[in-house]
Every structure is written in C-alpha cells, then in structure tokens.
Amino acid sequence: MNKILIVDDHAIVRAGLKQILNEGMLDVTVDEVDCGMGAIERLKHDQYDVILLDISLPDKSGIDVLKRIRADENKTPVLILSIHASDQYALRAFRCGANGYINKEAVTDELLKAVKKVSSGGRYISENTADMLLDILEGDSSEAPHSRLSDREYEVLRLIASGESLTQIGERLSLSVKTISTYRTRILAKMKMKDNNELTHYAIKMDLL
C-alpha cells in the first residue's frame, strides 16, 4: 500500500490532489495537513512513501519544511508542488533534498507519473523545468541578482515585494523585526538596490511573486 502525505494550506487543492491520487493509484492511503509544523509533527509519528509539499505555506516555507525533514534524517521522497516559475525555486529545492518538482497546474497524468517516479526512488522534473535548470547550471541565469541570495533572504525578498511590513514578515517567520531588518539590508546590498520599491519592481519583472 502506498501512503502519501499532502501538505498544502488550501482545502480545495488538497481535495483535488486526494481525488487524483485515489482515482489514479491502486491501494493508496492519503493523509493531509494544512501547514508546515503540522507536517513536521505528523512525520514524528507516521511514515509515508511520498510527501507532496507545497512551496508556499502560512507558517513556514516549503523549503524550510524540507530542510527540517532532511535535518531529522527522514529520507521520505518529497515532491515539491509550486505555482511559481520553475527556475525560481526548483534548484533551491533540489539542493535541499527534494526528489521532484512539479507545477500545480500540471495535468493529472504528469502528477501521477511524478508521484510514482519519486516513490520508486527516482527523481522527477518536467522537461520545461529541466531546460531551465540547465540554463542556470550553464551560467545563463547565474548573474541574476536574486541568485546571490540565501534561501531565507530570497523568502524575505518575496514577502517584502508582496507588500508585507517587517513586523508582519517577522511574525510569519517567527523572527524579530531586527533580524528581518538585517536580512533586508543584506538583500539590498547583494542586489545593489536602494529601497523596497526597487525590490518590488524587480520581483514583479522577474516573476518571483
């Protein structure tokens, strides 16, 4: 029996994924949680064959959850689900131990193919994502300013560009305002920008939101 955990904060998305898995796979059990900490707690007590992990969660980013899963020496295959442009998160996800990366808009057959591939010990990326990753590795995207950021800095950049205040970002990430301010200073320096307006304009232009 395949046992799968869905980690996504949208009930309608979880319901859709659950239906696809139940209809497309034989002998499968699907559990679901709506936040990162919920996933971490669930994994302390239950074992799964595959984890479907949303990259954007209300309490922790999918990247942070993935790092925690691997830090706990949990080797369960993780398939990242994302609505973001593949090249913005895919490479970061694989570096943190993801086994696959798929866009939420993928058709049913591709999702089932990805789940089966990672559950059998393989890795899955779409052809489009593979091309983007090759461009990055070959240097075509290596000079993009946001590529210089750490995973946490990149997350703070996206939240700033989304219009959240430093206080709101601190609450979301469970960090002090002072720490978030330090991240903002580093981001501006690394990206050679002056203020939040420039960061926001850049994020929109590069489709980071």
Rank of each mutant, 00 (worst) to 15 (best):
D151F: 09
G122S: 14
P77G: 08
T108D: 14
E153S: 13
I160S: 02
S82D: 03
Y183H: 14
H146W: 14
S150R: 08
M132D: 08
A161V: 07
T108Y: 10
L112R: 02
D140I: 09
R148M: 09
R184G: 03
R92Y: 02
K113L: 12
V156H: 01
K75E: 06
K113N: 06
C96I: 12
L134C: 14
Y101H: 07
L173S: 04
Y154W: 14
P77V: 06
G121T: 13
Q88C: 11
R95E: 15
I80T: 13
I80S: 05
D72N: 14
K113R: 15
V177R: 02
E127A: 11
Y124G: 06
E73F: 12
E171N: 10
L91Q: 10
I187R: 04
I83F: 04
S141L: 15
L134M: 15
V118A: 02
E110N: 02
R148E: 09
N128I: 13
S147E: 11
L173P: 02
S174N: 15
R152F: 01
S162P: 09
S162W: 06
P145M: 00
E73L: 12
H146N: 11
A93V: 13
R70Q: 11
Y101K: 04
R186A: 13
T129L: 08
S150C: 05
D151R: 11
V78S: 01
R148W: 06
S119P: 00
S86V: 03
M132A: 14
A144K: 08
I102N: 04
D135V: 10
Y183C: 07
S142D: 04
L66A: 05
I102D: 02
S176I: 00
T76F: 03
S126H: 06
E105G: 15
P77N: 11
I69N: 03
N103D: 12
R92V: 07
G139T: 06
A161N: 04
V115N: 01
T76I: 12
A144L: 13
Y89H: 14
D131K: 07
C96K: 06
G122Q: 13
E153T: 11
L79D: 00
E143T: 14
E171M: 10
G139I: 09
E153P: 05
F94R: 09
L133H: 05
S120D: 14
T185C: 09
R70L: 10
L81R: 00
I180S: 02
E105K: 14
I136T: 07
L149N: 02
K190A: 10
S126F: 01
V107P: 01
E155C: 06
A189E: 12
T76V: 15
